[in-house]
Simulated assay, not measured.
Amino acid sequence: MIPWNLLALDKALRASWAADTCSPDDLARAGWQSDNPAWGHCDITALVVNDIFGGDLMVGEVHADGDQHGFHWWNQLPSGVELDLTREQFRHGQIVTAARVVERPPGPLPRRWEEYLLLRERVGQHLGPLPELAPLPE
């Protein structure tokens, strides 16, 4: 196996993001476009990064013009370093506030499970096999 680096992971994610993995909320609100590929992918990207590195999931509120416009997800690695591979999606003055650690739910996600699996599969096609998923509860 060839060792991975953050540049390879970032490149694999960017090549894997598409309209069919974008959050339906974000797709409806502004539409996914290839010139802003991170748009609508923060939650499932943070999960894929968590699959690889472990650590904690972080979530914060997205605000624009004084109103909340959803949530943003990223990672806190076991070392305490925060890693956000989708932050650049915010190009119109949005601010992320109220950051907090969130425990990853066990088993399949209540929403976006199919998109998460599709993103994982695509990233694995670029990098090679990703760490195994935890067994699903019976």
Rank of each mutant, 00 (worst) to 15 (best):
H69K: 04
H92C: 03
A38I: 02
Y116G: 07
L83A: 09
I2Q: 14
D20N: 15
H126F: 10
L127M: 13
V59P: 01
D20E: 15
R122M: 12
S79M: 04
L133G: 05
P110C: 13
F71W: 15
A98R: 04
M1T: 02
G70H: 10
N75F: 00
A18E: 12
D51F: 02
Q33H: 15
E138P: 13
D35Q: 15
A28R: 15
H69Y: 03
S23K: 08
E132Y: 04
L109A: 07
L13I: 04
T86I: 04
A46Y: 07
G31P: 05
G55V: 05
D65R: 05
L136N: 08
E61P: 00
P24G: 10
L57H: 01
R112S: 11
L130T: 09
Q89R: 07
K11W: 00
F71P: 00
H41V: 01
V59I: 14
G70W: 03
A12W: 12
L27E: 15
K11Y: 04
I44R: 11
S34G: 05
A64Q: 11
I2L: 13
A64K: 08
L7Q: 13
V81I: 13
D84C: 00
G80H: 06
G60R: 01
A28V: 07
L77A: 02
G40H: 02
G54P: 09
V59S: 04
G54F: 10
Q33I: 06
G107K: 09
R120P: 08
L27G: 14
E138V: 08
P3W: 08
G124W: 07
I52M: 11
N5W: 07
L119P: 06
Q94W: 00
H72Y: 08
I95Q: 14
S79H: 05
E115I: 01
A64C: 05
M58F: 02
W73K: 03
G93K: 01
I52Q: 06
E121G: 09
F90Q: 01
C42M: 09
G54I: 13
